[in-house]
């Protein structure tokens, strides 16, 4: 359940609009909610029935009654509201349903605080998430780490994000706000090729920058809601730097094949482009990383799966 909370549409919006600390507390509350849900409903519940009911309550809310959830500002109030809607459900069902709506109401209140996003829209995606969460809850209980977070991969094969780091944001959930402009530091470098020049494709020496800098670190403006990929696309286009990418549906992100005609596998079988934001290598695709004001975004060419540019995640996880 926890992983699903990464995908709540309002979460991302919060991440854009609120400050860093706010963002974290939101996620934290999301976790505790998911946690309590697991404690309450699992074990005794007939899981498939519970899953089904969560769909029902969610869709009913989406179809007709967003106001109900809007009024319930905390998770405690929502069981009553759900009881009234689902009627004679058995206790497990209502319990499960309440969690679904609780999550939703939590989301709603968040979005009320921070954003003027359309309510109907949130309701719809709530339905979708409901279906999705039911699918998840059918599966066996996931192992958890010390903080009570579920271990395992999300829908797009992403491992849990370390605490304090921004969670992935699905590009389809984001509306880029052209009016709100921020700045970040952006650079594209390929120093590692210079250190591994013997591995490098000799036919491409003509495009290899002698100082390893494709795009020197500089301040770049971006609109609110833009991802690292959007930023890269725009900068390369403005600066007439060649870029080839491919959308990979299973990771829901663009895969950068080559920048400035320096392609993956040009410097050995373990080479390619990777990115780093604020000295952290995100463990998800660049289309899902939303840039925040003042971020330091770096695109780095690695010749050894990230180890040579300081990605210790890849070292630990093979």
């Amino acid at each position: 359940m926890l992983i699903i909370s990464f995908f709540l549409p309002s979460g991302p919006k919060d991440a854009v609009n609120s400050t860093d600390e706010n963002n974290r507390t939101d996620i934290g509350s999301g976790f505790s909610l998911a946690d309590s849900e697991e404690n309450n409903s699992y074990g005794t519940a007939d899981q498939s029935a519970a899953a089904g009911s969560s769909v029902v309550t969610d869709s009913s809310a989406a179809a007709g009654n967003p106001a109900v959830t809007d009024h319930s500002s905390s998770a405690d109030q929502s069981p009553a509201a759900d009881d009234s809607r689902t009627g004679k459900g058995h206790p497990d069902k209502t319990n499960k349903g309440s969690v679904g709506s609780g999550m939703r109401s939590n989301r709603k209140s968040d979005s009320k605080e921070s954003d003027q996003s359309g309510k109907a829209d949130t309701g719809k995606s709530g339905t979708y998430k409901g279906v999705f969460s039911s699918g998840k809850s059918r599966s066996s209980k996931k192992p958890k780490d010390k903080q009570g977070r579920v271990l395992g991969k999300d829908k797009y094969q992403t491992d849990p994000v370390p605490s304090g780091k921004p969670v992935p944001v699905e590009p389809k959930d984001v509306d880029v706000n052209q009016n709100k402009k921020y700045t970040c530091t952006f650079s594209i470098r390929c120093d590692s090729i210079l250190d591994h020049i013997s591995l490098f494709d000799q036919d491409k020496l003509s495009v290899l920058p002698k100082n390893g800098t494709v795009f020197a670190a500089g301040t770049v403006a971006f609109s609110e809601g833009e991802s690292v990929f959007d930023l890269l696309k725009r900068v390369t286009r403005d600066k007439k730097i060649q870029l080839e990418f491919e959308h990979v549906p299973i990771y829901n992100s663009a895969h950068i094949e080559g920048i400035h005609n320096l392609y993956e596998f040009d410097c050995g079988a373990l080479s390619g482009w990777t990115y780093r934001v604020n000295q952290w290598f995100p463990n998800y695709g660049c289309s899902r990383y939303q840039v925040k004001d003042g971020d330091v975004v770096e695109w780095l060419y690695t010749c050894n799966l990230g180890k040579d540019v300081g990605n210790h995640y890849s070292v630990i996880n093979g």
Binding site: K240, Q242, N261
Partner: peptide, 18 residues
């Protein structure tokens, strides 16, 4: 294929035509 140093224009999906 979108390789090449001479970018002529861009495809709708954002990849260059070289």
């Amino acid at each position: 294929s979108h390789q090449g140093v001479t970018i002529l224009t861009y495809f709708p999906n954002g990849n260059p035509l070289t």
